[in-house]
């Protein structure tokens, strides 16, 4: 018996979310007195760090992409059978959301999506519900169990070992989707928002797209990603992929700096998992202050240059 974890990668590089899922699987395996087998695909260099994150063995399928969920499901189900795994773990990311539900349906397994805790003795796991406004503890009643792990919720293991990589051949069947092209839209070195540890975000209080220079400058100095409120994306001041909140993306960075955002409940739903929240707003009654760890009541156009100055000094002294 072992715990199987699917590890997605981006041109051979495993994002933090994948490695966190491996470390989570390792913790589950320790509870069950067993080991972790990772299943991945395509071209890798070495074990890609999966061993150090907790995998004892890496199975590598010849599939070159995780975009076809039917094919990847067949491979993962075959790997689960070979590894004799009753628990299959994924990251709750683009690939995990695509493939984990299929694997659960195929294995007739209960699935808890976006887990924020390890299973307890009854195999109950916590997850955020009501867009982060509450937490549910859910018990999986089935023999097989699938868990997707919420990124940025678990510590990475780094044990310095390397796992053996074995080629794994399974009948993936015919492809159902064809990838026509991938349009690269993030500029070189830009941090994808869902993975960012630091986020600088701004709202309608910035008055117009011409004032985003300072927001971008602060983000650049700190090495942060930029985000925005929904109206700002809707009027076209900022690109849609920056829209965070209930109807945009959900982020949980270590630091979220909100400038000129009122803090409507739908906005908070996407950011209230952030570890530290800083709110800059000229209205002391702005609801966002209730969710903030640090607040500055003041005009963004006056405050931002001072913060940028402080950030430059901080970086220079580091």
């Amino acid at each position: 018996m072992s715990v199987l974890v699917f590890a997605d990668h981006h041109h051979g590089k495993f994002p933090k979310g994948s490695l966190e899922a491996v470390s989570y699987a390792k913790k589950v395996a320790e509870q069950l007195g067993t080991d972790v087998v990772a299943i991945t695909y395509g071209t890798l260099s070495g074990d890609g760090g999966l061993g150090s994150a907790g995998a004892s063995k890496v199975l590598r399928s010849a599939l070159t992409s995780a975009s076809d969920s039917q094919q990847m499901t067949r491979v993962i189900v075959a790997a689960a059978s070979q590894a004799n795994a009753d628990v299959v773990v994924f990251a709750h990311d683009i690939a995990g959301k695509l493939i984990a539900p299929r694997v659960a349906a195929r294995l007739d397994a209960g699935l808890v999506p976006g887990a924020t805790s390890l299973p307890d003795a009854s195999f109950s796991v916590k997850k955020n519900v009501f867009s982060g406004k509450a937490i549910a503890e859910i018990t999986m009643n089935t023999a097989k169990k699938v868990i997707t792990v919420l990124p940025n919720s678990f510590a990475l293991e780094n044990n310095g070992t390397t796992a053996a990589v074995e080629d794994f051949s399974a009948d993936a069947g015919a492809a159902g989707v064809k990838v026509k092209e991938v349009k690269i839209d993030s500029k070189d070195g830009e941090i994808p928002l869902p993975e960012a540890e630091l986020v600088v975000s701004a709202g309608r209080g910035m008055k117009g797209p011409e004032h985003w220079g300072q927001v971008e400058e602060l983000a650049k100095i700190l090495g942060a990603a930029t985000a925005c409120s929904r109206p700002v994306a809707d009027i076209g001041w900022r690109p849609h992929h920056e829209h965070v909140g209930q109807t945009g993306i959900t982020i949980r960075p270590n630091l979220y700096i909100a400038i000129g955002i009122s803090g409507a409940i739908q906005h908070l739903a996407g950011v209230n998992g952030s570890k530290t929240i800083v709110v800059i707003n000229k209205d002391p009654e702005a609801p966002f202050f209730k969710a903030a760890d640090y607040g500055i009541v003041g005009d963004a156009f006056e405050v931002l240059p001072r913060i940028i100055e402080g950030a430059k000094q901080f970086v220079a002294n580091k």
């Binding site: 549910a136 607040g295 500055i296 001072r306």
Partner: peptide, 29 residues
């Protein structure tokens, strides 16, 4: 295949620490 065991609310924030606009330069530190 799953059952709900219980709900809970996230722990409340301990409160907001205010910095005056004049001292905004200290925020990052």
């Amino acid at each position: 295949s799953t059952t709900l065991k219980s709900y809970s609310l996230p722990p409340a924030k301990s409160g907001c620490k205010y910095i005056t606009p004049e001292n905004a330069g200290d925020l990052i530190k």
